[in-house]
């Protein structure tokens, strides 16, 4: 009797027991899911450890066994900022943003020419672009150093901007081309019959369709430029140094203090980690030159 009188709206809407949805009770999937989670946490743990260490005191950071419970402190971040991270951060930001804009400016028309109205020898041009990515960078560094030194552009942010643009341009052309190819040709035909000019068609029809692609391409260029080390360490020093070179310089000047280093590394890596999380679906497309959609 009590059950009937106390049946409120919440219980009234729940399903009767005999209509309960049958759920899988097998243990196999549960084990696999657990294994997946363990592996994922295992792969991620070093990153987490870096971030945790950044909030430790130096004593907690260099202890045996490692300290897992500690009182977080911001003193390491303070040290990093005192060490003059500002200009490096600004240089990284400048080199990344400007080179990415240049890449988009150069790659968009090129990708258009190679996809929507293919020119002769499209294949050869495309393969030329990739082939430049296959030349080991180290083979070019000597003359680049000599030339840059001779024209007095050593330790200049524009040197990095030009090199980063060249470094990312092939990826961007291939990637954007794969986005352009996804625009159905009937759409362009419809627009031309509707009386739209080429510029109008690009702006009003094509651009809205490929803008997520442009965004993804930009994020990938940002990731690569921000993380670049080889050119930065060889061609810059105090004036135009970027975040990766700051880390090196920080180790040299401060010594191997784990907590400080972790704070600096966290600051250097964070922007790209966030950009990468946003672009993770398109990472493969960028790195595989658009071969994988």
């Amino acid at each position: 009797m009590a059950t009937t009188t106390e049946r409120g709206p919440a219980t009234a809407t729940s399903e009767p027991a005999d209509q309960e949805i049958r759920r899988s009770t097998r243990t196999g999937p549960v084990l696999l899911t657990t294994l997946t989670w363990i592996l994922a946490i295992g792969f991620f743990f070093p990153v987490l450890w870096m971030v945790l260490t950044a909030f430790k005191t130096e004593g907690d950071a260099q202890s045996s066994p490692p300290t897992f419970v500690f009182t977080p402190t911001f003193e390491q971040f303070a040290t990093v900022f005192d060490a003059g991270i500002g200009p490096y951060l600004a240089n990284s930001l400048g080199a990344t943003v400007i080179s990415t804009l240049l890449v988009l400016l150069l790659a968009t028309p090129a990708a258009f020419a190679l996809s929507m109205r293919p020119v002769e020898k499209t294949q050869d041009v495309l393969f030329f672009f990739i082939s430049t990515k296959m030349l080991p960078v180290v083979a070019a560094i000597v003359p680049i150093y000599v030339v840059v030194n001779n024209v007095g552009l050593l330790d200049n942010i524009w040197t990095l901007i030009v090199l980063y643009t060249a470094m990312n341009l092939p990826i961007a052309v291939w990637m954007m081309r794969s986005f352009f190819l996804e625009v159905p040709s009937e759409l362009l035909e419809a627009a031309s019959m509707d009386g739209a000019s080429l510029g109008r068609t690009l702006r009003e029809v094509v651009l809205p369709i490929i803008s997520p692609g442009i965004f993804a391409t930009a994020l990938i260029c940002v990731i690569f430029s921000w993380n670049e080390f080889f050119f930065a360490v060889n061609l810059t020093s105090a004036n135009a140094g970027t975040m990766p070179t700051f880390l090196v310089q920080f180790v040299t000047s401060q010594g191997l203090y784990f907590a400080q280093l972790s704070a600096a590394a966290t600051l250097a890596a964070l922007p790209v980690i966030i950009a990468g999380w946003v672009a993770q679906n398109k990472l493969v497309q960028g790195l595989s030159f658009g071969a994988v959609k």
Binding site: F43, V47, V272, I273, G276
Partner: peptide, 10 residues
């Protein structure tokens, strides 16, 4: 995916 994103120097 995070280990792939972290700045190689870091």
């Amino acid at each position: 995916v995070t280990p792939f994103l972290i700045t190689p120097v870091a």
